[in-house]
Design a protein around this nucleic acid. Structure first.
Ligand SMILES: [Zn+2]
Ligand SMILES: [Zn+2]
Ligand SMILES: [Zn+2]
Ligand SMILES: [Zn+2]
Lengths: 163, 163
DNA sequence: TTGCAAATGTTATAATGTTGCAAATTCTTC
DNA sequence: GAAGAATTTGCAACATTATAACATTTGCAA
């Protein structure tokens, strides 16, 4: 049994953000992709917590920043970040979350707490294997696997028990 | 190796629809839920093919029908159908598809062909088990599992090979 | 038949996401 | 360094998806 994973345990979140930004810079440099100020700022905002953030929430902060931003500004930045595997879109929430496996090619599996909103990204080889086998059995060739699981995180389960 | 599953093989689709409607009637009767004409018509439209249908597509047909319908008409019918497990919402497409396991309590796993648009709903026990184990390992209590896999169905793989 | 709950009609509005084009910036090549 | 190409951004309008709020009707039961 493992110690609980990042979003679920108290941690220095500023370090999360710093690490994510540093990784992003390294990845973009390596790929000759341009992590422009707007893109970097959007990534920073997405990482402000482990809760997914909506595009229009990002837009609101950019506007507060004094940035003259419109929806395309945000969606373009998010597209860029997604393409480079720096953020993921959570389809069931229409929102975006920082990728905790940036750089590696992967399809995440997301545990979404319906109580606190935190999202944990996992890569579960057994799940990937089972999915791949199930698809193959039907002759289906998977390209993009999206797994989003809503439920209760450990902290919120504990909290709920105290009610 | 199995014979290919329903949406992938030529079949009498009218029979699909008829069966789905018959099942729906039975399920609703058994639960004292009212499958009103609007709800039944929406279900029938959703079942018009194995491709997911958007809410506003449904709305357009209802309007053609002469039904004085507005968005809430459709969304309410879809909510009802979802609650009774008669349709599923495909989050990655903002669209709805008929459930092929109606009545049974389940979370489907969807194989979505990016070429033809057909969707196959599976229940893969191995996947469910792996997901459940991966979540448990993090102390997470899953409630709603959403698995949507985009790729190529057997027919479209074959077609693509001929290009 | 009267009263209640469920379902529907109706209008407006919120939330999310896209298109198209022009201006500015950055990169490349000479 | 300057010209030209490609990428990025600004900006306005628009498209799509979904919900809120409240009045009205319908089905059912006491
Ligand atoms: Zn990731
Ligand atoms: Zn939680
Ligand atoms: Zn069919
Ligand atoms: Zn189903």
């Amino acid at each position: 049994m493992s110690t609980s994973a990042l979003p679920y345990r108290p941690h220095n979140h500023d370090a999360c953000v710093a690490q994510a930004l540093a990784d992003a810079r390294a990845i973009c440099q390596q790929r000759n992709a341009r992590l422009t100020p707007t893109r970097e700022r959007v990534l920073e905002l997405i990482w402000q917590s482990h809760k997914p953030l909506g595009a229009y929430d990002v837009l609101a902060v950019l506007t507060e920043d004094g940035h003259n931003a419109a929806p395309p500004t945000v969606y373009r930045a998010l597209d860029f970040l997604q393409q480079h595997g720096l953020v993921h879109r959570i389809a069931s929430l229409n929102a975006f979350v920082g990728c905790t496996h940036a750089g590696k090619h992967h399809n995440g599996m997301f545990l979404i707490c319906r109580s606190c909103g935190n999202v944990l990204e996992l890569t579960a080889p057994n799940v990937a294997k089972a999915v791949s086998e199930a698809a193959s059995a039907e002759g289906f060739q998977p390209e993009d696997v999206m797994i989003e699981i809503a439920g209760l995180c450990p902290a919120c389960r504990a909290g709920a028990a105290h009610d």
